[in-house]
Design a protein around this nucleic acid. Sequence first.
DNA 1: CTTTGAAGCGCAATCGTTTGTTCTGTTAAT
DNA 2: ATTAACAGAACAAACGATTGCGCTTCAAAG
Lengths: 373, 373
Amino acid sequence: MNIYLCISDYLRKTIVKAWWRYFKQEMIKKKKITIQDIARELNTTISTVSRALRDHPRISVETREKIKKYALEHDYQPDFRAASLRQGSARTIGVLVPRIDIHFFARVLRGIDEVASENNYNVLIIQSLDSLSKEINLVKSLVYGKVDGLIASISIETLDGEHFKPLINKGVPLVLFDKVLEDVDVTKVIIDDHYGAYIAVQHLINQGCKRIGHFGGPQYLNIYKNRKQGYLDALKDAGLKIDESLIFDDMLVKENGYEVMGKLHAMKNPPDAIFSSNDFAVVGAIMRAKELGVKVPQDIAFTGFANEPMDEIVDPTISSVEQNPVKMGKEAARLLIEQMEDKKSAFYPKTITLKPSLVVRQSSMKKSFVIVS
Amino acid sequence: MNIYLCISDYLRKTIVKAWWRYFKQEMIKKKKITIQDIARELNTTISTVSRALRDHPRISVETREKIKKYALEHDYQPDFRAASLRQGSARTIGVLVPRIDIHFFARVLRGIDEVASENNYNVLIIQSLDSLSKEINLVKSLVYGKVDGLIASISIETLDGEHFKPLINKGVPLVLFDKVLEDVDVTKVIIDDHYGAYIAVQHLINQGCKRIGHFGGPQYLNIYKNRKQGYLDALKDAGLKIDESLIFDDMLVKENGYEVMGKLHAMKNPPDAIFSSNDFAVVGAIMRAKELGVKVPQDIAFTGFANEPMDEIVDPTISSVEQNPVKMGKEAARLLIEQMEDKKSAFYPKTITLKPSLVVRQSSMKKSFVIVS
DNA sequence: CTTTGAAGCGCAATCGTTTGTTCTGTTAAT
DNA sequence: ATTAACAGAACAAACGATTGCGCTTCAAAG
C-alpha cells in the first residue's frame, strides 16, 4: 500500500512537472513579444531596438537589418498603447454616428476613411444607436487616449451639446456634421438643406405642378426645419400659395407616408405633387397610391430627400436630393486633421456648407425629356 | 522719435507679456487633467487618488468623496492607454467586416454591440472594404494593444488565413463568422446555408413549381457553394430533375438578374421559379419581368437570400431566407468573451451553426393562404 | 505597558515605448 | 601626442495609470 502510494505520488509529481514545463513553454511561445525580448535575445538594448525598427540613422545598417529580421520572424508588433502613451498621440480619429446601417452615414464614413488613410490616421467607428445616454458615455470614454479628435453627428435625442463642452475645454479637436448644434462653437460641415429643398420644389414646379404638399420631419431638428423653409420659399418665389393642409410633419417612416396618402386621396382638392424631407415616406405614399389607383407621377409627383439606394430599385424610381455624403466625410476629416496638426496655434471654428444636387427619376417626371438639376 | 520708440517698445513688451500669461493659462486649462494633477492639488498621492476613484475599500469615505468631487468638477477621465497598458487588457473587442453599409453586417454588429455592452466591453469596428491588403494591415495593427480579441468576417478577396496565423500563435482570441476559412482552426459562427437554400426551394415546390432555376454566386465561396448544393438536394429529394440550363453563377447584382431574366423569357421552356442566392439579382429579374409582361409570382416565382430591407419595399415584395444576423453577432461575441476570459485554460475551437428561416412574401406566394416556414 | 490589528494612506515598481543625454571607442585634425 | 569629432550604442527618464507592500496612527486586547 505504502509502495503504491509512493509510486503514485512520484508519478503524479513527474506528470505535473512535465505538464508544467510544457505549459510554460506554450505560454512563452504565446506571450506577446516586446522590444525588450528582442534586445535581450540580440544582446543589445531596447533603445537600439526601438531606433532600429524606426530606421533611425544613428543605428548602423547591419544592426538595423539584424533587428528587423528578428522582429519580422517573430511577428513583432509594437504595442499601440505604450507607443501612443509615450508619443502623446494615437493617430486615431473617432467617428460617432447614430447608426452605421443608415446609408448616408456609411457613405460619410467612406469619405472619412479615405482622407484618414491618406494621412495615416486610423478611424474608430462608434454608433450611439440614437440614444443620448449612450452618446454621452461614448464621448467620455472615447477621448482620453483612444482618439486625438472626434467627428460626430449627434443622435436624434440630443438637444444640447453639454457633453461636448468638456472636450472643447480640454482642447480636443471636434467636428460636427449633418445634424449639428447651434450652441457648440466648433467646426461644422453641413449641407444646405434649404437649397436642396428649394431646387427639388422648383423642379416640381417646372414639371407643371401647382398644388405641392410637403412631408416634413420633426421640426426641432434644424435639417427638417430648413428643408421645410426651402419648400416654403420656393413656393413663395414662384407665386404659388401655401396650403397648410398639405403640410405634414414627423413623416419619417414608410407607414406615415402610407397613411397620409390615404388622407390626401380623400381630399376634394388633393395635391398634384409632394416634396418629402425623406425617401421612406415617399415609398409608403407610392405604395398606397398604387392601391388607390392613383398614378405616379401623372396624378401626383414625388420628390424625396437623401437619395437612398432603394430609390432606384422601387417602381417607379424616386427622384431625390443627393447630399454627397462622401464629400461631406472627406471635408470633415480634412478639417479635423487640419485642426489636430495645428493644435498649438489658435484655431477658429468654421462652418462648411455643401450644396446638394437633385437626382431626377420617374416619380417626378411628368414632362419627359425635361431635366432640371 | 526716440520717445515714441520707447513707448511703443514698452507697450509691445507689456502686450506680449499679457498675451503670454493668458496663453499659458489657456494651455493649462486645456491640458488634459491626470491623476497626478488631482493628487498634487489635493495634497495626497496618485495611489490614493487612483484607489479612491475605483472605490477601493481601504480609502476612507470622506477622502473618496473629496477626490471624486474634484475629478467630476474637472472632467477627469482616466487615460485609456495608461490604464490598459498597466492592466494588460483593453476590454475592447475588434470587429473586422468587409463593409459596414451592408445590411447584414450592420445587424451582426448590433448583436455584437449588445453582448459586448452587457459584459462591459468596447467594440472597435473596422472595415476592410473587401481589400485583402487592407485586411492584412488592419489585423496587424488592431491587435497588440488596441483589442483583446477579434471577431472577423473575411473579405471576398481573402483565400487563405495566413494573416490570422500570427494572432493564433500569440494566443489572441479569434472568432470568424459568416465567410470563414477552412484552414484556420478557430471558433467559427456560420449559418447553415445548405438548409436555408433547401427550405427555400422546398417552399417553391410546395407552391406548385416544377421547373426551378437558380441564381448563384461565385462558387469559390463556401456560402454560395453550399446554397447551390441545398438547391440541388431539394430538387433531388423532391424527385424533380435538374436542368443545368436554368442555373446561373455569379449573379450578385441587380443588372445580372435583369439580363438573365431576358434570356429566360426567350427560352422555349422557361422556368416557373427561381431560387436566388441573393436578393439583388431578384430585384433586377422582377424589373425585367414586369417590362416583359411576365407576372410574378403567377408566371414565375422568386425566392431570394439575405432578407434585405428592400425586400418588403419593392413591388411585389420578395420572399427571402433570413439569416438572423443579430443572433449571429450575439453568438460570436459570447464565444469570444468566453474565450478571452478563459485564456489561461486550454481552449478548444468550436463551430456554431445557426439555422436560417424563410420569410414568405408576395414574390413566391402562388397559392395564397399556404404558409411554409 | 506592550502587543496586536486594522484602518488609512504613501512608496515605488510596473506595463512597453520613445527619446534626450551620456558613454565608449575609433579616426581625423591640430 | 593631444584633442576634436563622430558614429554607434547604452542609460535613464518620461507617458499615466494600477497595485503589492510597507509605513503610520490609534484603539482594543493582553
